[in-house]
Design a protein around this nucleic acid. Structure first.
Length: 272
DNA sequence: CCGCCGCCCTGCTTGC
DNA sequence: TGCAAGCAGGGCGGCG
């Protein structure tokens, strides 16, 4: 569930708390959630300092003085918690100096923590940052060109655009008034512009509201976000559309729950 | 390369 | 009331 806005919120909260801190120990309760092995990761990380914290797509990146890079992908139910109490979901605890600690907790254990060499090219497979200036309407159009797939699952492809997940794909398509199953290559230039703007507006608004706490998400200090209060379609089956009052519909598209307004987002291209 | 499918994983919700 | 199925879904391997 943590998508770009949630990960950005976590990183912003974490940065002033842990940059400069020294890692005194690493306890790994569930070894299959880390790479390399628990012993190797612990040995390599202990004693190093955290020199920077940032984000790429949905991935949280810790730069270490070793030098090396520690990445965390939260997947569905992962959390990074500063100075939190240990729970059944606590999978990795990073002890810091000054008696602080950072926990990687994850109920469903789908998340991953990976230690990489500083020169690793791990980002090469990730697409454009949707809130960066690089993400222009024309670049977006080129990503969609020749794609026979439905637009919604395409928005989830991290190789194309890094950071959009199911919530913001649904919300951006509603904002742009485009049906989730529209074939990407059939979008008109005007629709591409509209969807591009909707992606940026939706993500930026969600960052401003500190993310969506639809189910599990909380930030590094355990606080919920605010975007769940303004969701237009995600998780809102049968509720009236905020624009036209038609009931929101849930369907399954490419194995994902998909919410949309059948009146505002008609499958047939609107003539006007 | 492209697109689609199943799998991973646990806990909450739903329905009989 | 109890239990099983359904659902949440990002990423990845496998396949055509």
């Amino acid at each position: 569930m943590p998508e770009l806005p949630e990960v950005e919120t976590i990183v912003r909260g974490l940065r002033p708390l842990i940059v400069g801190a020294q890692i005194t120990d690493v306890e790994i309760a569930l070894p299959r959630m880390t790479l390399p092995s628990a012993e190797e990761l612990r040995a390599r990380v202990r004693g190093s300092r955290i020199t920077a914290v940032h984000r790429r797509g949905k991935v949280i990146v810790f730069e270490l003085s070793t030098p090396s890079i520690l990445t965390v992908h939260l997947r569905m139910t992962g959390r990074l918690l500063f100075d939190a109490a240990r729970t059944a979901a606590t999978r990795v605890r990073i002890s810091l100096d000054q008696a602080h600690h950072l926990d990687f907790a994850d109920t469903r254990t789908l998340g991953r923590m990976t230690l990489l060499p500083a020169e690793s090219r791990w980002q090469d497979e990730l697409g454009v940052e949707p809130l960066s200036e690089t993400f222009t309407p024309s670049l977006f159009g080129s990503l969609l060109a020749g794609r026979g797939r439905a637009i919604k699952p395409l928005l989830l492809e991290q190789r194309l655009i890094a950071g959009i997940g199911n919530i913001y794909a649904c919300e951006a398509l509603w904002e742009a008034r485009i049906a989730p199953e529209r074939r990407a290559a059939t979008l008109t230039p005007e629709e591409i512009h509209r969807l591009h703007a909707a992606i940026q507006r939706t993500l930026q608004r969600a960052v401003d509201l500190r993310g969506t706490s639809a189910r599990d998400y909380v930030d590094a200090e355990g606080m919920k976000g605010g975007f769940q209060n303004v969701l237009a379609v995600y998780g809102r089956a049968d509720a009236p559309c905020q624009r036209c009052h038609a009931p929101i519909v849930r369907m399954v598209l490419a194995q994902r729950g998909t919410w949309f307004c059948p009146r505002c987002q008609p499958i047939e291209r609107r003539r006007s």
